[in-house]
Amino acid sequence: MDKVLNESEGHFFSSRKSTSDIKGKIFVGLTQLAVILIISILFIILAVIVYQGRSKFSWEFISSFPTNGMTEGGIFPALIGTFILVIVMSIAAVPFGTITALYLTEYASENSKFAAAVRFSVRTLAVVPSIIFGLFGLGFFIQFLGAGADTAFNGGELRWGQPNILWASLTMALLTLPVIIVSVEEALKTIPRELREASLALGATKWQTIKKVVLPGSVSGIMTGTILAVSRGAGEVAPILFTGAAYYLATLPGSLSDQFMNLGYHVYIMSTQSSDVEKTMPIQFATTLVLLILTLSLNVVAVIIRSRIRRKAK
């Protein structure tokens, strides 16, 4: 490397510059190639899934139950299950994440060890493999909380000590927590210091300032975080593998202690454990298409809101 540098420096005005030019072109070309490759893979995935899934993709497909041992019919229960999952997840994760972000931006002092520990924990949560959340959900929510609640309140009758939609949603909430915290924190930081000072100088307390100035100013940030979390939660499968997702259910879940079907899990099951993988191929692609539309469109919305917040902050 050093050699190349010396060469090009030493012969700056000489004809050797052209070799450096060629090297430069190759190098820049390589970086371009990487970008093009990544983007084209992305579009190939999209194109293949849209192309293969389009034949089956219809309103009927979305709104009907699977039939005939899941080799025909639609994905309605999986879609509904996914919706319930992300709703319960959001109810748990959004307040939790927002408050943690509030702590980090408003209450934590700069050199606080505690705040540093919270930050580190949040970042760790973001990199823990999703399957670990599944294990935690099984070990903590189901075996510990659920089974404990059954022993204490149900007289040992099994109700909460088994996989269900509540435990799956809470597990997913833990997984998506960092997404929300990061988004809300970013939004809170864009609120100018002058506004906080204006409020405090008028004799408002810290909490009044947060309630009346800071939180209203970060609504769009909370929304971005929620949307991103929902997008993530709708697509993750590993955490719910053994905390509540079911292979097939003839009815929609009626309570939080029921199991549920899920789009991502449906894709996984259909493509690996279906009795006739070949025959159900269109169903699989269409299900994947629905899942992809759901997660990508949510993401696009979040990116748009976020770029608006950033522009406003400037």
């Binding site: 995935i45 709708a234 993750e236 499968v237 590993a238 996984y268 690996t272 699989q284 994947t288 997660t295």
Partner: peptide, 21 residues
């Protein structure tokens, strides 16, 4: 944003694409 959009692909979708295509 396009490359970061790849992060929004659920891993089950990528897995499915790998398995099928």
């Amino acid at each position: 944003p396009i490359i970061e959009m790849l992060a929004a692909f659920p891993s089950v979708v990528i897995g499915f694409f790998a398995l099928m295509v």
